[in-house]
Design a protein around this nucleic acid. Structure first.
Length: 567
RNA sequence: UGACCUGUGGUGUAAUUGGCAACACGACAGAUUCUGACUCUGUUAUUCCAGGUUCGAGUCCUGGCAGGUCAACCA
């Protein structure tokens, strides 16, 4: 319906299994050929990249099949849920570029309907009030290989259940003393069919309904019926709900008329990303135990974390498109995500020069006191982004790694006697290496060729290397936060006996440095994205202050030299 | 030892539904380059196993094997 235009890759020729199902449903005119999906987060944490996959899937289907998508908060457990999460989830979905139908919906909007429906089920003898303790119930439920036994309350009179259910609602009983159970099949090989709980007593304030309720519906009951109330056609969830599907269908069977409208649950494999964790519970621990600065710490796999890190919505959408959708367990290499950001930022980010690890260079034959404004291209991938001026003078800084006193033959950068180009400036040659008492290089003396202004030699001679630099007395001194992966193993969840995922935290995942960046960034605002040429993509963090620019490194550039040097 | 699901290059996803196993990422080699980036070219490597049906099987059948999920008053 009111979907915004989405930039994605060209229409692909092959369909994933969900699209195949949907196209077949449309061909069969199921549900009138309509497509209505939903994204149903529980507001008990921030959304992560795994949710992004689901969001792109659900909203993408809505868009591609001329349908639409509801945002529905699955808020049936007031003990864990919070308004902070409701807000962050909406912000994240919007940021990704998707628009849901009308206002956000809430399972709690249906509490009355759900209650009435439960009463009907009791009247039909399909549900009963059970008074077993959690331990008793577990014991009676059996195991996957052994059938369960009926609860002593299973065949209590309908009137009694009705009365008890009403009194539960009125708050007459304590938590854990009574529950409403569906009467299905204690012998089912599927544990979820062994008289699952529909309602439990919970005397907690709900973020929307306040103190109105002290009984709350369970997921299996609330979710499918909410789908039904909303007219959802395809209810897409992750694989672990596959065994819940018979129950989803059972509840539906109690209310739909044969041949009429009916939603359908389809399961796909959740995203697993190498070197990261995706469990909300564990992410919450990282936040609570302060291993990270918050849900939006740029090292977090949360959508807000990636946003702060400098990822773009397009890059995440393209990533979601690339990883595809299927039913087998997967472990996606983070390098694919990184490829997706680089690809997008390459087209969009303003180029700028920034020196992260400075080494002073004095150009001895350049006039003292002189300075020039040289032309630099803002983005070679997009000429429309124009040019800017960069300040040049006798003293500059270059990257420490760009000089080697004893250089191997395949080292194209600065070394004694080897001429290199200062990007957009001049060719220089190193004449002297100045060292301190410890033998550490403190500065370089170079000469420049005035004829090579702008970066080209009139005599046509070539240099192999081009390095970046900044004017020593005319630059921005910025804080730069260098991020690395949060965990140092591919699957942090796979911890050995007695340890947990925290034992795999990378102690060097954040390094804060001061760097010298050309003046052009001075006017940047939080969220602005740059490529520090030859170094990586950086964006201005929200912590930036007028006199203190703060950058987050989004991702490094691909570094072929580092690979060669390591050999 | 139950039920359900899943097995295709290093990773992920395809294969016109029984007809030459392809695309992306990675890796490797080269070209290009005022970013050792980007771009371009090339190379590498794949149908879990064993039978069967068929002119022909990744696809169908049988039997194995491997992995995942399920026994919260969580979602």
């Amino acid at each position: 319906m009111n979907q915004p235009p989405i930039e994605t890759k060209e229409k692909k020729e092959s369909l994933n299994f969900i699209e195949q199902i949907i196209e077949e449903d449309i061909r069969n005119d199921k549900n009138g050929g309509k497509v209505l999906t939903r994204f149903p987060p529980e507001p008990n944490g921030y959304l992560h990249i795994g949710h992004a996959k689901s969001i792109c899937l659900n909203f993408g289907l809505g868009i591609n099949y001329n349908g639409s998508t509801n945002l529905r908060f699955d808020d049936t457990n007031p003990a864990k849920e919070d308004i902070e999460y409701v807000d962050s989830i909406q912000e994240d979905v919007k940021w990704l570029g998707f628009k849901w139908n009308n206002e956000p919906l809430y399972a709690s909007d249906y509490f009355d309907k759900l209650y009435d429906l439960a009463v009907e089920l009791i009247k039909k003898g399909k549900a009963y009030i059970c008074e077993q303790s959690p331990e008793e119930m577990a014991a009676y439920k059996g195991t996957p290989t052994q059938p369960g036994k009926p609860s002593p309350w299973r065949d209590r009179p309908v009137e009694e259940s009705l009365d008890l259910f009403a009194r539960m609602k009125n708050g007459e009983f304590e938590e854990g003393t009574k529950m409403l159970r569906a009467k299905i099949d204690l012998a089912s090989p599927n544990m979820h069919m062994r008289d699952p709980i529909m309602y439990r007593i919970k005397k907690a304030d709900h973020h929307r309904t306040g103190k109105k309720w002290c009984i709350y519906p369970m997921y299996d009951y609330a979710h499918g019926q909410s789908d039904y109330f909303e007219g959802i056609t395809h209810s897409i969830c992750t694989l672990e709900f596959e065994v819940h599907r018979p129950l989803y269908d059972w509840f539906l069977d109690q209310m739909v008329e044969p041949g009429g409208y009916r939603p359908r649950q389809i399961e796909f494999a959740r995203l697993n990303l190498s070197y990261t964790i995706m469990s909300k519970r564990k992410l919450l621990r990282l936040v609570q135990e302060k291993h990270v600065s918050g849900w939006d710490d740029p090292r977090m796999p949360t959508i807000s974390g990636y946003r702060r890190r400098g990822y773009t919505p397009e890059s995440i959408r393209n990533f979601a498109e690339r990883i595809g959708v299927a039913k087998r367990d997967n472990l996606i290499d983070v390098s694919l995500l990184e490829f997706s950001v680089r690809e997008d930022l390459n087209k969009k980010a303003l180029r700028v020069m920034g020196v992260l690890n400075p080494l002073k260079v004095v150009i001895t034959n350049y006039p003292e006191g002189k300075s020039e404004q040289l032309d630099a291209i803002n983005n070679p991938e997009d000429q429309s982004m124009g040019t800017r001026k960069v300040s040049f003078a006798r003293e500059i800084f270059i990257e420490k790694d760009d000089f080697l006193e004893e250089a191997p033959k395949n080292f194209f950068r600065l070394s004694p006697g080897n001429e290199v180009r200062l990007r957009y400036a001049y060719f220089i040659k190193c004449t002297d290496v100045v060292k301190d008492a410890n033998g550490q290089i403190t500065e370089l003396h170079c000469t420049y060729d005035p004829a090579t202004k702008g970066g080209n030699a009139p005599d046509g001679r070539k240099v192999k290397g081009t390095i970046h630099w900044v004017d020593a007395s005319n630059h921005v001194n910025a804080e730069v936060r260098l991020y690395d992966r949060l965990f140092n193993v591919e699957e942090p969840d796979e911890a050995e006996e007695g340890k947990d995922f925290l034992s795999h935290i990378n102690p060097d995942s954040l390094k804060v440095i001061r760097a010298f960046v050309e003046k052009a960034v001075e006017t940047g605002k939080p969220g602005d994205k740059y490529q520090f040429e030859r170094m990586g993509y950086f964006c201005i963090d929200k912590d930036a202050a007028p006199n203190n620019v703060v950058f987050n490194r989004t991702v490094t550039l691909k570094d072929t030299w580092a690979k060669i040097a390591n050999k």
